[in-house]
Structure formats: structure tokens, C-alpha cells
Design a protein around this nucleic acid. Structure first.
Lengths: 235, 235
DNA sequence: TGGCTATATTTTGTATGCAAAGCCACACGA
DNA sequence: TCGTGTGGCTTTGCATACAAAATATAGCCA
């Protein structure tokens, strides 16, 4: 039972609930289309509806939930066009990060990048899809940070969070893991070589590929309902 | 007096107040560092503190205000490093938009872009700094839209809003207007020619120039206080 | 039997009240 | 005269209460 979790934290209670619910959405505990009941959440976290409403505002601002006036809040459901649009933005953001990373990383950082990438080889054969997904997250985050552009990094992370519910099982598809590793390899080579434009181009292609995979997965498994179908209480 | 403005709108009251305050901040009515008093705002808009608090959450999520637990809300004050970081993100976003615009605009749209750019010549000589600033906004927004990437467009607009309070008077500087027009000209040429990479590079340089101008202006006029100086009620 | 309307119930949005945390001023001591 | 501690005052954060909107349900009429 994770009712109140670390409720006695420093922040304003709302912040901790935001964290908690955002985690639930990003991690897939709460599926897109699920309606969030303010009353129930209030009981779950042991607070009144007021801070819960504030929490919903925060989540809506992040794009993780959709707020319809007088009609409650649901975990964001993206149409396939919205999804591809979001991936496109992601591709551009990541490409920009990769470009800046290629220009700005110092030799220590380049070595570190090369190292964790090389070490990830064994995950391709021995690890589970989940293991590789976790590494993948780390890899991309490292490049965000390496761009040394905090705001760009922030935008990339935020966009990634919005996409998370829809890319859950991408690495279960085909031999996506080894293909992903090859793409990473090309990106790392470009960054190490300081070839900014190639790094950007390769990263853009990489994310576009992920986008296509994700769309394929969604199409096959019908994870995301259509634009008008609200799918209440899908759990 | 714009007390309640169009308070009887469709949305949930909170939305209209958010709009109103966001406008005040973006337009410079409320200066960075100004403390926003919940009680006073409640009276100004004729509502209780609850929706005002929700409004503050929205604004904080947009980055327009800073919320410190138990210490209230102030209009966001950016250090010069934060400011340049934000401009850097802006440059990358706008470059990405320009790149996509060069790839995707149809002939009608290209003609339209060329047309409004050409027409803006007379503003360089005859118009005021404010006139050109308004046109400039339109020009950039047009390219955002032309990217045909709604989310990228959204990110760009949001970032632009955050920067707005700090770029107020950039066109009063030197002969910035004519210089800006020349930069626009190069960008338009690249987009019309379908040269995506040049469009991106030129746009990035253009925004970087604006960033430098803005930093210079801030340094000269001390518009933005330092990181720790809170500057309460500067009006 | 099927569709429409009216009512009841749930749920959302806003107001008000109370407790706690922060800020300020004044007093006391060095 | 200056630094520090304490008390009051202001403001924030959360809870509870009430009003309005939406949804579900049941009844009515065709």
C-alpha cells in the first residue's frame, strides 16, 4: 500500500502528490483514458479535495492529464496524430541536444558516454527488454545533460514523460533492441568525433524510428483509444 | 480599470484569470520580481482565494511565476545565466521550426511568407520600434505554424512567453531593426529555396543575436535584478 | 418497444474558516 | 550602538461546506 508514501516531506504536500501521480502515469500504473476521481484520490492520500485539485492542475500543465471543465480529469489520451506530433517534437529536441553535446562535451564526458554505451552491449544479448529500456532512458538522459542546456534538457525530459505511457513495450517488438543499439552506436561515434550535424541527424532518425515502432505497437495492441473514445475506467 | 475583464467567459473562471495575469506578465504590466498577493488578486477579480491559488499553479507551471512554499508567488526573475539558457533553448526550437518549415511549406505558404516579409520593409524606415516588434512576433509565429508541428509550435510559443518580459525594448537598441530585417531576409530566402539546413542555421544565429542584444539591454538598464534580490512591489 | 424528457444523484467549482509557517518590529543585553 | 531573541501580525496551506453543472436513471408518450 503506497497510500501516503513519503507524505511528511519538505515540500507542500501538493508537490509530493504530483510526484506520486506523475510517476504512476509515466510508469504505466495509471493507463491513458483512466478517469481520476478527486474524492478517491483525496482518500488515498489522506487529504481533502483542495490539494488534489491543485495537483490535477499541475498534471494538466505537464500534459499528463486532460482537464475538461465540469467534467473531470483523465489521464491524457493521445490520438495517433497527436502522438506522432509529440514524437516529432521529441525528435527535434533530442537532435538539438545531441548537436550541442557533440559540440560541448569535454573528453571526460566523451569517455563516460563511450563507456556506458560499450557496457550496454551485454544487455542486448543477456538483458530483458525492461533492462534495456532502463539503460535506454539513462543513455538519452545523459545526452540531454551533456547538451549543457538546462532548459532544453527540461523540455526534453517533460516531453519524454508525456510520451512514456505510450512507449511502454516498444522493446518487445521484433529485434528492436539490437537495432536500437546500432543506432546508439552511430550517434555515439558522431558525438565522440565532434560531428554535430551528423549527431543531430542520426538522433533525429533514431527517435523517428522509435516513433514508428511505437505507432506500430499501438496499432497492433490498441493501447490508445481513438480521438473521441474516452474509455472511462479502463482498469 | 481592467478588474474583472471578460470574467463571464466560457471556461472555468480560473482559465480567464490565468489568461489575464499571463497577459499582464508577458506584456510587462507586471514586472519580474513583483510579488503577487493572493488576497489582493482575489479582490481584484472578485473571487475567493481558492481559484487564485489554482491560477498561481498554472502560471508557475508555465514558468511565468516562481512559487516558494509558504512564501508566496513572485513574477519570475531570471538570472542572466537562466536567461541565456532560455534563449539558447529558444534558438534551437526556432531553428527546428525553420528547418521543418523549409521542408514542408507549400507554394502558397511560401508566397505568403515572402509577401509579409517584403511588406515589412516599410516598417524598418517608417514604423516605430513597437510596430516592428509586433511584426516580428507575427513573422516568427508564422514560421512556427509553417513547421506544421503543433507541439513544437506550442513549446516555442511557451518559451517565447517566458522570455517576453525580458526582451521588451530590444528594438530600441542601436539600429537593431534594420539588422533584424536583414536576418529575416536571409531566413526567408533559405526557406523559399527549400534549404532546410541553412534555414535552421540562420534562424539559430538570428535568435542568438537577439539573445545577445537582450543581455546587453539588461546589463545597461538593470531590468532584471540579480538572483537573490527579490525586489518586492517594484511598481 | 423505443425514444425523449424530467428528476435524482454524483461530481465539480467556489467560498469561507482555521491552523501553521514565515516575516517584522520591538525590546533586551553586550 | 549593534546583534540577538521573542512576540505579534500577516500570509499561506488545507479542510469543510455549499452551489452549480453534468450524468444516470426512471417515467412517460408515441
Amino acid at each position: 500500500m503506497n497510500n501516503t508514501r513519503d507524505s511528511a516531506r519538505k515540500g507542500t504536500m501538493v508537490d509530493s502528490i504530483v510526484q506520486s501521480l506523475a510517476d504512476d502515469i509515466v510508469s504505466g500504473q495509471l493507463l491513458p483514458g483512466t478517469k481520476l476521481d478527486a474524492q478517491a484520490m483525496a482518500e488515498r492520500f489522506g487529504v481533502s479535495r483542495t490539494p488534489i485539485r491543485e495537483t490535477f492542475s499541475h498534471l494538466a500543465a505537464m500534459g499528463l492529464v486532460t482537464h475538461r471543465p465540469n467534467r473531470g480529469v483523465v489521464v491524457a489520451t493521445l490520438s495517433s496524430t497527436s502522438l506522432s506530433g509529440l514524437y516529432e517534437a521529441m525528435a527535434e529536441l533530442e537532435a538539438a541536444c545531441a548537436r550541442l553535446a557533440a559540440l560541448r562535451m569535454n573528453s571526460d564526458q566523451r569517455e563516460e558516454l563511450q563507456r556506458i554505451h560499450t557496457e550496454s552491449v551485454h544487455l542486448v544479448r543477456d538483458g530483458t527488454a525492461g533492462d534495456y529500456a532502463a539503460f535506454n532512458q539513462e543513455f538519452h538522459s545523459l545526452i540531454f545533460t551533456a547538451s549543457q542546456s538546462p532548459h532544453l534538457c527540461e523540455l526534453a525530459q517533460a516531453t519524454r514523460a508525456r510520451l512514456a505511457p505510450f512507449r511502454r513495450a516498444q522493446f518487445r517488438l521484433n529485434n528492436r533492441v539490437s537495432q536500437s543499439w546500432e543506432e546508439h552506436d552511430a550517434i555515439v561515434k558522431a558525438i565522440i568525433a565532434g560531428d554535430a550535424e551528423s549527431a543531430a541527424r542520426l538522433m533525429r532518425l533514431h527517435v523517428q524510428t522509435v516513433s514508428a515502432m511505437s505507432a506500430e505497437f499501438v496499432a497492433e495492441h490498441r493501447t490508445a483509444p481513438g480521438p473521441k473514445l474516452t474509455q472511462e475506467k479502463s482498469g
